[in-house]
Computed example of a mutant assay.
Amino acid sequence: MTDRPFAPAEQRWLAGLGTVRDVVRQTLVAEQVEAALALLPPGPKRVLDVGCGQGTQALRVARLGHDVVGLDPSPDLLDRFRADLDGEPPAVRDRVRLVVGPGQQAPDLAGPLAAGGFDLVLCHGVLMYLDDDAPMLAALAAVVRPGGLLSLLVRNGVGLAMRPGLLGDWTQVHRALDGARYTNRLGLDVRAHTPAGLDAALAPHGLTRRRWWGVRTFTDHLDGPPPEGAALDELLGAERAVAGVDPYRQVAALAHLVHARA
């Protein structure tokens, strides 16, 4: 697979920003990233966002006062990030550096900030596009400092049959039960991960899971714009209430895991 397996669907991805599914994902993940940062000692942190795309999460982290490197193989998505960054106050712009390149080369591409490792490394919505994620996981682990955290957002393989079931696609329900691959909303054949599988893959790199949440338990099958006002608050409140609770997080569309290096 190429360094840009996501490239054929980039425009479809951008077209989906702002939908109810995107709003739920970005809102909950942002709150969960803040919860991860709260596990670290107070003060500004060094953060690397691998596969940062249009920069939704990286920009929010920079607004919190942290230094951020955004790494992505897509010049087009980084241009979108750069355009949004240009509208930020100088103090936020100065905390962000954007780099074009694959995440597997993060130790070489992250620059001076990589010296000594990052306090928090984000890799959200990337692993599902890789046929072999071992090089990526090794690269991510290599740039997490001792005591630092790795945040992964993946398609939840534990509840892979939920979306086709909610959509009434009964054939795909059986396919989901039989394996770890699925066709995503962008039309790409991709793979899911389980918390236990990622635990096993990261243990040899000295990383142990600290937290995990489900994202989009109730809304993964919904399209279109989000509700407004109080209705949106209620929707987000319901998703937020079950994000860290079994069995609901086990059937969420996405799994958000935070692993720590000793």
Rank of each mutant, 00 (worst) to 15 (best):
L48G: 03
R181I: 02
T171F: 07
L85K: 13
R181H: 15
L109N: 05
T208G: 06
A141H: 09
V251S: 12
L37W: 08
G157N: 05
A231T: 15
D49F: 03
P44E: 00
L222T: 14
R155W: 15
A139G: 06
G87W: 00
R185Q: 14
G179K: 06
G147W: 05
A260G: 09
D133A: 14
L37D: 15
A252W: 08
P247G: 13
E88V: 06
G43R: 00
R82I: 09
L198H: 06
Y182P: 09
A196M: 04
L152E: 14
A62W: 02
V190E: 15
L222A: 14
E31Y: 05
L48W: 01
L71F: 10
L167K: 09
R210A: 05
G43L: 01
V50T: 11
D3T: 14
V158Q: 11
P44C: 00
P195F: 04
D76T: 15
L122I: 08
R80K: 10
L130R: 12
E88W: 02
A241W: 14
G101Y: 02
A138P: 09
C123T: 12
A62N: 07
Q172G: 12
R25D: 13
P42Y: 02
G168Q: 03
P8M: 02
A115K: 15
G103D: 08
C52V: 02
D67A: 06
P204H: 12
T219R: 08
A9C: 11
N184Q: 06
V92N: 05
P164T: 10
Q54S: 12
L222M: 12
A262H: 09
F6R: 04
F81S: 03
L207N: 07
G187N: 05
R93L: 00
L71E: 04
L257K: 06
G103C: 01
R261N: 09
G16A: 14
L235Y: 01
V24Q: 07
L59A: 05
